Computed example of a mutant assay.
Amino acid sequence: MKKNILLVEDDPALRMVMREVLKDEFEIEEADNGLDGIDKGLKPENDLIILDYHLPKKDGLEVIEAIKKQFPNVPVIVLSGFLSPKSEAQFNDLGATKIFPKPFNYRNLLETVRSLTTRANQVEQAPACAPASMASHPPLSETERQMLTDSLNAVATLAEKIEYLQSVSEKYWIEPADISSMREAIRCMETEVQRFYGKMNNSLFNAGEFSSPLLTNINRPSLSGQN
């Protein structure tokens, strides 16, 4: 049985291309503005949502916030031609699963949708109780949980930029606009690394009281890049 994908994108040409890429493997529903995106996004049959940032009537941040309140576990892929560090952090805080900078590689989008819908299916079929070997580990402290969250968010953000740079580098030729986009992606990567290093500063590492040997023994980040 095909999984259900909701495309919330106001560009009809881009929406058409994504529909053609996905339709053989997924059932596709579409919305061309944020208001319709919320209305259709609140249907329980959605297995994954692909969401543009800049939308008429309601923007992507409003759409994902409304959907995640009712369906916190539905994966949401965000598309954007430009994200400031602030808006990118807002999407991550609201539960965005993946962020694709435009233009993006459609093959990578298809593979990501396959992966996320397969993963969601595996979670649904997983046993309710965790294995004893997992339950035996001590719980993380609040500091450790925050460090882990910040680390995963930073890695996810950098991975998205790397995917974009890879998709551009696969072209037979690079347009002047591609060069500007690549420079912007690199700038955002540098900003994310600096922000992550700022959070993982000496005061955080010296706070102590770590229950996990892994976090106790890791190297401290260095702004010089020499860890």
Score class of each variant (00 low, 15 high):
N4R: 13
E9L: 07
D10L: 02
D10W: 01
L14P: 03
R15G: 14
R15M: 15
V21C: 03
V21N: 04
L22K: 05
K23F: 00
E29H: 10
G34L: 01
G37R: 03
G37I: 04
I38T: 03
P44A: 11
D47C: 04
Y53E: 04
Y53C: 02
H54L: 14
D59Q: 01
E62T: 08
A66C: 07
Q70F: 15
V74G: 00
V76I: 10
L79Y: 00
S80N: 04
S80R: 08
F82P: 02
L83T: 11
L83N: 04
S84T: 15
S87A: 01
A89G: 11
Q90G: 07
Q90P: 01
Q90W: 09
N92V: 10
G95V: 03
A96V: 02
A96C: 06
K98L: 09
P103E: 05
V113L: 04
V113Y: 01
T117G: 04
T118N: 09
R119N: 10
V123M: 12
Q125Y: 10
Q125V: 07
A126F: 13
P127I: 08
A128H: 11
S133V: 11
M134T: 12
P138E: 05
P139I: 08
P139L: 09
E142P: 00
E142K: 06
Q146R: 14
Q146T: 09
M147V: 06
S151Q: 02
A154D: 02
A156S: 11
T157Q: 02
T157R: 05
L158C: 08
L158T: 03
L158D: 04
Y164L: 15
L165T: 01
S169I: 11
E170A: 11
K171F: 01
I174V: 15
R183W: 09
E184M: 01
A185L: 05
I186Q: 07
M189C: 11
V193S: 07
Q194P: 01
N201D: 15
S203P: 05
A207L: 11
G208D: 09
G208S: 01
F210E: 07
S212H: 07
S212K: 01
P213A: 00
P213H: 07
L214M: 09
L215I: 10
T216H: 13
N217V: 09
N219Q: 11
N219Y: 02
L223S: 11
